[in-house]
Simulated scan of single mutants.
Amino acid sequence: MSGISGASGPGIEAARAILAGAFAKAAEAGMKPLAVCVLDAGARLVAYERQDGASPGRYEIASGKAHGAVMLGMGGRAQMARAEAQAYFIAAANGALGGGLVPVPGGVLLRDAEGAVIGAVGVSGDASDNDEAAALAGAEAAGIAAEA
């Protein structure tokens, strides 16, 4: 299932598949309760869900991970590497983009068959590496290419 609704981003059915796939990965791996946020290519919310037990502030973190991925065109792992190499760039980008970036693993880009960015998924609730694994599993469940 591609679930792509044009170049603007994943449609609601694909977003629901991403949520389900991320939560299934979390259950399989025994992760803490997660929050998952799916954005389109314009960083607009497509879907969000927070599992029981995940703290309410997880929305902002999951959204920030996805927002940074879309706005910078690089996943959270790449953002973290960039922050380590050029902290001034991430700090400046964060300021320019309203302070909402969370440059750590758990935000992944979603790409169409031609490689164009169609959105992002952000996950928060467990260790960042586990959040990233859940995000990637969600994209895989929806049949969408993802980039950390």
Rank of each mutant, 00 (worst) to 15 (best):
1 M>I: 12
2 S>I: 11
2 S>N: 13
6 G>F: 10
7 A>C: 03
7 A>E: 10
7 A>R: 13
9 G>P: 02
10 P>Y: 07
15 A>W: 06
21 G>I: 00
22 A>N: 09
25 K>A: 15
29 A>C: 12
29 A>L: 15
30 G>R: 04
32 K>A: 15
32 K>N: 14
32 K>H: 14
33 P>F: 09
39 L>V: 00
40 D>R: 06
43 A>F: 04
48 Y>C: 14
50 R>E: 14
53 G>N: 00
53 G>E: 13
57 G>V: 14
57 G>F: 15
58 R>Y: 00
62 A>D: 11
63 S>R: 15
64 G>A: 00
64 G>Q: 07
65 K>Q: 10
65 K>H: 02
65 K>W: 08
69 A>K: 11
70 V>C: 02
70 V>L: 09
71 M>S: 14
71 M>R: 15
73 G>Q: 12
79 Q>T: 08
83 A>H: 03
84 E>S: 14
86 Q>C: 06
86 Q>G: 03
88 Y>T: 07
88 Y>M: 13
88 Y>N: 11
90 I>P: 10
91 A>Q: 12
92 A>F: 10
92 A>N: 13
93 A>M: 15
95 G>Q: 07
95 G>W: 05
98 G>F: 00
99 G>S: 10
99 G>Y: 01
101 L>H: 00
103 P>M: 11
104 V>G: 10
104 V>Q: 05
105 P>Y: 11
105 P>I: 13
105 P>L: 03
105 P>W: 11
112 D>M: 06
112 D>F: 05
115 G>Y: 01
115 G>C: 11
118 I>F: 11
118 I>A: 07
120 A>Y: 05
125 G>E: 00
125 G>C: 02
126 D>M: 06
128 S>V: 14
129 D>I: 07
129 D>T: 12
130 N>T: 02
131 D>S: 06
132 E>S: 12
133 A>L: 07
134 A>S: 12
137 A>D: 06
138 G>E: 06
138 G>I: 00
138 G>W: 03
139 A>K: 01
141 A>Q: 03
142 A>F: 08
142 A>R: 08
146 A>W: 02
147 E>F: 10
148 A>M: 01
